[in-house]
Amino acid sequence: MHLPFARIEKMPLSEIVPLDQMPLGTRCRVLSMDEDSESLLRLMEMGLIPGVEITIERTAPLNSPFSVRLPGCTLAIRREDAERVLVRPLEENKG
């Protein structure tokens, strides 16, 4: 919805990953998220919106929730919500 689909389609598929699949510690950019989920809408209001750059910091002991650092704050995201957030790792991780 926010990122024109044409642009998403042009990216190599391997670069678009659900947030929960990313290794801990990676920095990535949020591409899109399921807007029909109340939890994700609430997370959007807390600042997790498409376009924002985030760092996946860690997970809690039972592998959920994740803690994700945004510019300005750190949020907790449950695994089942993270599955519905698509991200792309930033170049800097590869360096």
Binding site: E38, S39, R42, L43, M46, P65, S67, C73, T74, L75, A76, I77, R78, D81
Partner: peptide
């Protein structure tokens, strides 16, 4: 309920 948790 959604988890609305900020780690301040």
């Amino acid at each position: 309920p959604p988890l609305l948790l900020e780690l301040p």
